[in-house]
């Protein structure tokens, strides 16, 4: 039976599931909004994957993204790895000559510098989430447009207007006042796109010398106005890869494949039956010390399978 490798990227805003074969062909892909129940969503998507590829054997599973620990545990992942390595792995595969990766997701943005086919440097936004996908989402909603139409509408702008992009709160009040001065929705959106890129340059690039080839990926890469704003800022063409929105999932699937081959061990994947298990999450405040950690407890069919949130390991170590 032919083997496939599953990659799951559990982001703050969306969840991506892919299956690749030995030659990195993408046999299954899904991108769904993370509405707050990542386990249920992953279960659902795995069911679909199984239905579409009933005669394939699962060779390995990798999980990345901010929710990677829990989902990795639930699925029995062979690899649980950070999103920077995952993204870079996929980009280097599809664009071997890449030097600079802009990745903008729901709650964080990254800059990855590639040299000779390996990561040479990276930066992530520090504390602030301004200039990421959820900010755009929120503003699109406020203006009453669909996020999918954001880019197209922004490109119809006739005039330039500058929106303060340093902080979400300021950006919002600036947008409102610019609207009141009579600038159109399209112009506001264009200003917003430029502000986001300016913010990215300030916070992440910070004077680094960027070299082509430039690749722009992550959910926000769907927005053509942002791509244009990047091109104007750096004065060079920017490539948006075909699978821009699932690069992290593809990368982690590739890493899982390598890992399984390298170790020669069979996959730890718990099987599609996991989708039949009933998961329940509860929390409580631990009173054992003044830290008062919020402990998150995950049960599968009534049995505790994972506990996290404690700083001392009192609970998280007791399960595994």
């Amino acid at each position: 039976m032919e083997k496939v490798y599953i990659g799951v990227d559990v982001g703050s805003v969306s969840i991506k599931v892919v299956a690749i074969d030995n030659d990195n062909n993408i046999l299954f892909r899904s991108y769904v909004r993370n509405v707050g129940q990542p386990i249920d969503i992953v279960k659902e998507e795995l069911k679909k994957l199984h239905n579409e590829l009933p005669d394939k054997e699962i060779g390995g599973v990798g999980v990345t993204g901010s929710g990677r620990q829990l989902i990795g545990y639930v699925l029995g992942a062979d690899v649980v790895k950070n999103e920077i390595t995952a993204h870079a792995t996929a980009t280097i595969y599809f664009h071997p000559d890449v030097s600079t990766i802009f990745e903008i997701g729901g709650q964080d943005s990254k800059l990855i510098i590639i040299n000779d086919g390996t990561i040479a440097d990276f930066a992530m936004n520090t504390v602030c989430a301004a200039g990421t996908g959820s900010f755009l989402d929120h503003q699109a909603q406020r203006l009453g447009i669909k996020i999918e139409e954001f880019g197209e509408i922004a490109l119809t702008a006739k005039r330039e207007v500058r929106i303060a992009g340093r902080c979400t709160v300021f950006a919002e009040s600036d947008m409102i006042s610019k609207q009141q001065y009579g600038f159109s929705k399209a112009e506001i959106l264009k200003g917003l796109s430029k502000a986001l890129v300016r913010n990215y340059m300030n916070n992440l690039v910070r004077g680094r010398k960027l070299r082509p080839v430039f690749v722009f990926q992550g959910g926000v890469a769907a927005n053509i106005a942002i791509k244009k704003a990047f091109e104007e800022e750096i004065g060079h063409e920017v490539i948006v890869p075909k699978h821009y929105d699932i690069m992290g999932a593809i990368g982690i699937a590739m890493i899982a494949k390598e890992e399984v081959k390298r170790t020669g061990r069979p996959t730890k994947f718990k099987g599609f039956d996991v989708s039949g298990e009933k998961f329940e999450t509860t929390t409580f405040i631990c009173k054992a010390c003044p830290n008062e950690c919020e402990i998150i407890q995950i049960k599968a069919n009534g049995k505790i399978i994972a506990m996290t949130g404690d700083r001392c390991g009192r609970y998280s170590n007791s399960v595994i």
């Binding site: 901010s66 620990q69 790895k81 950070n82 999103e83 920077i84 390595t85 390996t118 040479a120 992530m124």
Partner: peptide, 18 residues
């Protein structure tokens, strides 16, 4: 905590690959 782990992990990956 997760932001510290993600950064340190990615940084070590970079060094190990290099």
């Amino acid at each position: 905590e997760s932001h510290v782990i993600t950064r340190v992990e990615a940084f070590t990956d970079l060094i190990r690959m290099k």
